[in-house]
């Protein structure tokens, strides 16, 4: 059973989002997604300062047997990326919701309400 923290928001493409106090939103991939992918060997992060709209491919996570696009879950500007992943992509495997975050976004619209909550996401991955 993979972990689905209740305080986060989720997408069907297995990204999670956390609204931070400073108005930024942190994005990563779910425990379920990292388990499906297996040992991650490479993460291609977006550049800080880039703006994306919802649904854009913004990042690639790669394991030995698969490479998967990460889709921008909300529109906004990338303000920070998790540089540690460049050398240690396996952090995503060991800590998908904490140290394994991918990037932080400054949202350009209020789209968080449209996303799945933990219960909905849990139901989604149980299917």
């Amino acid at each position: 059973m993979s972990e689905v923290p209740s305080e986060l928001k989720y997408t069907e493409s297995h990204e999670w989002l956390r609204a931070e106090d400073d108005g930024l939103v942190t994005v990563g991939i779910s425990d379920h997604a990292q388990a499906l992918l297996g040992d991650l060997v490479f993460v291609e992060l977006p550049e800080a300062g880039t703006e994306f709209v919802t649904g854009d491919e913004c990042c690639v996570v790669e394991s030995v047997k698969a490479a998967s696009d990460v889709y921008m879950p909300i529109s906004g500007e990338i303000v920070a990326v998790n540089e540690a992943l460049a050398d240690e992509p396996e952090i995503i495997n060991s800590s998908p919701y904490d140290n394994g975050w991918l990037f932080k976004v400054r949202p350009s619209a209020n789209e968080m309400a449209d996303l799945m909550d933990a219960d909905a996401y849990q139901a989604e991955i149980d299917e």
Partner: peptide, 12 residues
């Protein structure tokens, strides 16, 4: 000639 190979290491 070899046993199972470490593909994760090869890619990382």
């Amino acid at each position: 000639p070899v046993k199972r190979l470490d593909e994760v290491r090869a890619a990382k």
